[in-house]
Structure formats: C-alpha cells, structure tokens
C-alpha cells in the first residue's frame, strides 16, 4: 500500500506565560491511498491540533518545533506558502470543526461554493456553476437549496454545502474534523455515509477526526487512537474493536454505551494537561497495569502483527 500522507514526529506547541502547551507532542501516522482513516480521542488529546499541524494552519502563539509532513511526496512544512495554497482545495481539502457556522450569512450558498471553486481553479463562472450544481446534487441537496441563505438551512444541510464545496475539485485527501458533532442521528448517518462514498466512488482518502467511536466503527478502514498528544495505537478498525491492546483503547471501548450492552465502565482519573505531561508513559497515572518502568520510560511505537502498532510496555 502506498501512503498518501506521512506524518513523522510532529510537534505543535503553543507558547504561554506558563511555558509551552505541548498539544501535539511527537505524533507519527500514515494514511494510505483510498482509505478512511479515523483519528479518535477525547477532548484535549490534540486531535484537532494534529490536523492543523498537518495542514500547516497553526497560527501564533502556536508553532511547530519539529516534524515532517509529507503529502504526495511534498514536504508540506517546507514548501513556500504560495505552493501550499495551490495544493489546498485542489488536492488537499479540509472540513474544519464547526465549518457549517463559517458560511457567509448574507451570500447565497451556491455563490459561496462557486467563489471557492473559481478561486482555486482555472474554471470560468459558467463551468464553476455547473460543477457546484452537480456537487450539491451529489450530497443530496435539492436544486432550490443553492439559492438559499445559510439561516434558511438546517445544520446538516449547511454541513453538506461545506462538504460539496470541499470536494468539488476532487482532492485526493479530505480531512474532516468532527464533521457530525451537533447533528441529529439521522443526519449524522447521512453525513457519515457521504464520507464513505467519497472513498468508494471517487477513491479519495478520508481522514476523519472524532471523539465518537461508534461513528468510526461505521465507516473507518483503520483507526488511530490518540492520547495526550501522541498516537497510542493504530490498526484496522476490526482488529482494534475486536482486540484492543493499549489499556487506554480498552478503556475507551468499554466506556461506549450501546443498545443491548448491560455494563459500561469509565476510565478513572482525568486527562493530563499539555502544560506538563506525566513522565514516562502519559497514560500511566490512569492505567491499571502500570509498572515502575511505565512511570520512567515513554514506550515507543512498536509494530505488533501486520499494520498494527501500539505504544505500550506490555507488548513487544
């Protein structure tokens, strides 16, 4: 399998008067062509910051001290801003968290989609209009929706306008951050299936960031579990759900309440602060299996079986 995106030891820090907030602190990850890769984790674990780092969207006081992000052979963090601009939208699309609230309230939604298309391609207005129209149709928006203003649309419709615009130029990689948060279940299902369709019909790679393990279970091929600024475990969605290895992943899976499940169990303790991560394995203060080694040495990522990686002293 050929990776489309390689992230190596990425760090994203935020300067503050108390010191650096090390939100993403040594994350490594690969995304392959034509897959849906999920990034899961709880709030504050650095999922969104990781994505911003990958897209080079980190703004001061944030900075990227080290790391390499290679997208289709290009090192995103090194190329000039102008080259990066050419890649965005055309090859690399991003649906940020809460994007549906970023639509301009006084412009019809189809005009906003057309503007974005013209801005990032060499298309004339007529072609762009045609394309926007067909993309709206693709995401299940009726023709009359294009002529409406954002306040006339529901959350799920606005989200689909954003997705239609993001994928209009057929990028090879789409990164979506919490795309279904705050949407109703039926709409959530529609949006999730839409992302799955991007892979199946257009052979795009989709990276979806979400805290919702059930959403991941429905559409992902592989899943990366993030904890305290690093990736704790990566593997196929089936292998992770069937046999979670990292104690944090185990806890996360047993904490999901679902229909027919008679017992759910939380993870005791609290997530650590990015201002001072615990020494050694960052999960050790909450881990039942922690040993003296765990408190001292941060476990490296080890390959356990095919395409299965875990950062835990219990394995390897």
């Amino acid at each position: 399998m050929e990776p489309i995106l390689e992230v190596e030891d990425l760090r994203v820090y935020y300067k503050s008067i108390w010191g650096d907030y090390r939100s993403v602190d040594g994350a490594s990850l690969k995304a392959y062509r034509n897959e849906v890769l999920s990034i899961a984790g709880e709030s504050g674990c650095g999922k969104s910051t990781l994505v911003e780092g990958v897209l080079r969207l980190v703004k001061p006081p944030g900075y990227i001290p080290t790391g390499r992000v290679v997208f289709e052979g290009t090192d995103i963090l090194k190329i000039p801003e102008e080259d990066l601009r050419r890649i965005r939208w055309t090859k690399l699309a991003y649906v940020p968290q809460g994007a549906m609230n970023s639509l301009n309230p006084v412009v019809k939604v189809e005009e906003q989609a057309i503007d974005a298309i013209i801005d990032h391609s060499s298309m004339d207005e007529e072609k762009a209009r045609e394309l926007a129209f067909s993309m709206f149709k693709e995401v299940g928006l009726r023709a009359e929706v294009g002529g409406m203003y954002p306040h006339q649309l529901s959350g799920g419709m606005k989200q689909r306008v954003i997705i239609a615009t993001a994928i209009a130029l057929k990028p090879s990689l789409v990164i979506a951050d919490e795309p279904t948060t705050a949407l109703d279940v039926v709409v959530q299902r529609g949006i999730l299936q839409l992302f799955r369709m991007l892979k199946e019909k257009y052979h795009m790679t989709v990276i979806m960031v979400s805290h919702d393990m059930a959403a991941h279970a429905q559409i992902a091929d592989r899943i990366a579990i993030m904890y305290a600024g690093k990736i704790a475990e990566v593997g196929s969605i089936h292998s992770i759900f069937e046999e979670p290895l990292h104690p944090y992943t185990k806890g996360l899976i047993s904490a999901i309440p679902s229909i027919g499940k008679r017992y759910v169990k939380g993870i005791p303790g609290l997530a650590p602060s990015p201002l001072n991560w615990p020494p050694g394995c960052r999960f050790h203060p909450r881990c039942q299996h922690a040993t003296a080694l765990c408190a001292k040495v941060d476990p490296p990522m080890k390959e356990i079986g095919s395409e299965r990686f875990v950062a835990c002293h219990l394995y390897g």
Binding site: V139, G140, L141, R142, E144, V145, M148, Q152, L153, S154, G156, M157, R160, V185, V186, V187, Q188, R189, G190, L192, Q193, L194, M197, D212, M213, A214, A215, A217, Q218, I219, A220, I237, H238, F241, I253, I256, S258, I259
Partner: peptide, 24 residues
C-alpha cells in the same frame, strides 16, 4: 436504525436517502 452501532461488524446495511433526511 440510524444510531451508529459501535461495532465495525454491524454496519448500516443501506445508504440513507440524503434528500429526505431533512425538510427545508
């Protein structure tokens, strides 16, 4: 039927019709 089941073995059988999920 729309609740995502947290189990990759139990995925939604069919795609939902996007045009009908929300009324204007």
């Amino acid at each position: 039927s729309s609740i995502p089941v947290p189990d990759p073995k139990v995925r939604w059988a069919e795609r939902i019709d996007l045009t009908s999920i929300e009324s204007i």
